[in-house]
Every structure is written in C-alpha cells, then in structure tokens.
C-alpha cells in the first residue's frame, strides 16, 4: 500500500505475513469467507438445476445422482437452492454493514471533531437510541412500510448505528488527542482533510473489525426477519427463508433443508468472526497472530 508500510517489516513477504497473522484456523476461516463471496457472485450461475423448479412427486426425496443433497418439501433441488440463496443471504448483511459502519464512522468522527456540546449531545442521543433491539425495529418498519429486504436492511442499519458510532467515537477521541493531528492543524490543513485523509485511515483497522463483527449480527438478524416472512419473500431462495420453509419437513423427520441452510449461516458467521478477530487481534484467542496495524503516515501524504 505504501512504502512505509513495507519498510516497517523488511524481509517478510506479503504471503507469509498474512499467514502468520491469521494462524491455521484463520486461514481456514479466510478460505470459507472467500468461497462464500465467490458463491455470492457466481452462485446463481453455478446451480446444477433451476432452484425454483419443483417436482412434487420428489418431495423430501433423498440424495441421488445429480442431486447430491436431495430435494426439499416441494421437490426442489436443495443444492441449487443453497447456492442460489448465497447471493441474497450475503448482499443483505453487506449492505447493513456498509450503511451502519459508514454512517457510524461519519457520526463518530464529526462528533469528535466538533467536540463540546455537539459531542455531548451526540453521545447522549446514541446512549438513548441504544435501547431499541434491531429485530424489533425491523418488524415495526416491515409493518409500516411493507415487508422486504430493503426495509429490513434499512431498519437494521439504523438499529446498529449507535453501536458502531459509540465504539468508533471513543477510538476517534483518543486518536484526535494524538500529536500528529495537532501538527497537521498547525500546518494549516483543513478539518475535512485531516478527518478524511488521516483520522479515518488510522481508524481503519478498528473499522474493519467492527465491520466483520456486525456482518455476523446482520446475517443472523436478517435471516430471522426472512424467517418471519418479513424480509426476502418466500419463493426466492434465501437461507433464512429456507430455514422457515423446511420447518414442516423437520416435524415430518426430514430436517435436511432447515439444517443445511442453518449450517451455512452458522459456518459463515463463525468464519467471518474468526477472521475479524485475527485481523484485529482483539486478544480473545490469546493474541495469536498479532495486531494488524496500518502504517501511521502523518504528514507523509499531505
């Protein structure tokens, strides 16, 4: 990324450095996340069968040649539905994370930069808004504005905003007190420049960790909302919808659809969390892999 960044650790190639940071478990997690992203992009084109084509005579039929995971309760190919569902299941959480973390960063940095009563007011408001659980807000929004993925994504972003903003605010506060910010101010850099080109880039590692953490929450919450029938609408394949759709099968002794869709969610969430933890070095696993540090390049880029 920058000359300073590589100069800090001479001798270590980028590959070994990343692997050292991640550890074996982290590498597995990274592989799962990359695979999920590829699936989300290619998934709908990779499906061996039409995910919506149903053959009721084959309802709950066990795996057979060409259908390695068998069929769901409506005689649709399970593997195709899981693959096609990857996209909707990933886009929602990604959108939530992008909205909540971007807005949270903006609110946090603006509040810290303004300081004084603006900061106090923002903190007080965040403290209070903190109290509204995301899933409840999403249900309220779905009832008022109509069910759908967009409404759910917006509701969750609003519900997560206080969490991201609060965490980033305290980090921005410590960062703002550092001498390089003062130095830039003395040099006459505008507040906007300092915030966007120095303060936010230096918060980037924390922002990245936040993003992975909230991706996991958003994935589960969105799956819950789709499970209720208030998010992604049933015929289109989505992991949350599949868990709900497979529920009658569970009671009849065919739990494959619900369990496989649930497993996809759990595995992906765990992988993303491990990755975030390893990259951020939150220390929950004993600090193995170390901390990811962005180079401090104050002054160098102005």
């Amino acid at each position: 990324m920058s000359a300073i960044g590589t100069a800090v650790r001479p001798g270590a190639g980028p590959g070994t450095r990343w692997r050292g940071r991640l550890g074996p478990l982290g590498v597995v997690a990274a592989a799962i996340v990359v695979a999920a992203i590829v699936l989300a992009i290619l998934g709908p084109t990779l499906t061996p069968h039409d995910p919506n084509a149903s053959d009721l005579s084959r309802a709950f039929a066990p795996p057979e040649a060409g259908h390695p995971l068998g069929y769901d309760g409506q005689g649709r190919d399970l593997l195709s539905r899981l693959l096609a569902g990857a996209r909707t299941s990933l886009i929602g959480p990604l959108a939530v994370v992008a909205l909540a973390v971007t807005a949270g960063t903006a609110v946090a940095v603006a509040a810290v930069w303004a300081g004084g009563w603006v900061d106090s007011l923002v903190s007080a408001v965040l403290e209070v808004v903190f109290a509204f659980p995301g899933v409840l807000l999403a249900m309220l929004v779905a009832a008022l504005f109509g069910a759908g993925l967009q409404a759910a994504v917006l509701a969750l972003s609003v519900a997560y905003l206080p969490y991201t903003a609060r965490l980033l605010r305290s980090a921005a506060l410590t960062e703002r007190e550092k001498p390089y910010i003062r130095a830039l101010e003395v040099q006459g850099a505008s507040g906007m420049t300092i915030c966007l080109r120095h303060l936010v880039p230096n918060l980037a590692p924390l922002i990245a960790v936040q993003a992975t953490l909230f991706f996991g929450y958003a994935m589960v919450d969105l799956a819950i909302i789709s499970f209720f029938g208030l998010g992604v609408r049933p015929p289109s394949p989505d992991w949350g919808v599949m868990i709900a759709g497979g529920q009658s099968g569970v009671l009849q002794g065919y739990p494959a659809e619900s369990l496989l869709a649930g497993a996809c969610i759990v595995v992906l969430v765990v992988a993303v969390n491990i990755l975030g933890e390893r990259l951020g070095g939150t220390g929950a696993t004993g600090g193995r892999g170390g901390r990811l540090r962005w180079p401090r390049r104050w002054g160098a880029r102005s």
């Binding site: 868990i243 649930g262 969610i265 759990v266």
Partner: peptide, 9 residues
C-alpha cells in the same frame, strides 16, 4: 455461534 432459531430447529 448458533442463533436461537437454528438451535430451535
């Protein structure tokens, strides 16, 4: 890592 609705299933 298992959310309630998957645990329920």
């Amino acid at each position: 890592a298992v959310p309630p609705f998957i645990a329920a299933i």
